[in-house]
């Protein structure tokens, strides 16, 4: 992050701390897509991701007065969001395999169909293979422990540095490294020849 952005962000934080709702909304808009993406990728459920979003930002709203610029705001926010995701993951008592179909407020929903497709492909066979691979990867991701999954998600999909991940999870860079290594090994074992 460039210094200029950092200061604009700190101005927003201070204004929000003084009760400026516009500033709070602007602050949220800087990061809410990332938080939703993290929740969606970790929980693979739009409903749960929506709950995580709501809970995370309400915690931010209620506790912003205690934010004292001791760490980066996004580190603090990701710590809150990943802790809530961890709680959700731990609450799932039965997690044999994650199905692509989940129950939502609006009925059954196929996650893979609800996802924005980046690479439109008109070849049915290639689409089928990609779909199979996605399901396999979803199962491989479901085989990781909640912590491994979060580290993998934050590093692989969100591009956070391991040091930042360690801070967000309240642990060390070394522990995050070990987690990433274990997650990668498990993913390789689970995907076998598919990867």
């Amino acid at each position: 992050m460039q210094a200029r952005e950092l200061f604009d962000e700190s101005s927003l934080i201070r204004a929000a701390q003084h009760g400026d709702h516009e500033a709070f909304a602007s602050l949220i808009r800087l990061y809410d897509q990332n938080v939703l993406r993290i929740a969606m990728n970790l929980l693979r459920s739009p409903d749960e991701a929506r709950d995580v979003y709501q809970e995370a930002f309400l915690r931010v709203y209620r506790n912003l007065h205690s934010f004292r610029f001791d760490c980066r705001f996004d580190t603090w926010l990701y710590r809150i969001a990943t802790n809530i995701c961890l709680d959700h993951l731990r609450k799932r008592k039965v997690r044999k395999e994650e199905s692509a179909v989940v129950e939502t407020r609006g009925g059954a929903l196929n996650l893979l169909e609800s996802v924005e497709e980046h690479r439109a492909d008109n070849n049915p066979q290639r689409r089928l293979l990609a779909s199979e691979l996605r399901q396999r990867i979803n199962r491989a991701l479901a085989g990781l422990t909640p912590r491994e999954r979060i580290v993998f998600e934050l590093r692989h999909y969100q591009g956070l540095r391991l040091r930042a991940i360690g801070e967000a999870l309240g642990t060390t860079e070394e522990a995050a490294k070990n987690c990433l290594f274990r997650a990668t090994q498990k993913m390789r074992a689970a995907l076998g020849d598919h990867a």
Binding site: D32, R37, Q54, L191
Partner: peptide, 30 residues
């Protein structure tokens, strides 16, 4: 490298409708 390329296809980008719904929920609650 193969694993990375394969895992990339499973990334989920939440829809803008979902993002919008989340924002509305939050602003209402706040």
């Amino acid at each position: 490298a193969r694993l990375h390329a394969a895992v990339d296809v499973a990334a989920i980008e939440p829809s803008l409708e979902l993002l919008s719904a989340c924002r509305q929920d939050l602003y209402r609650e706040v």
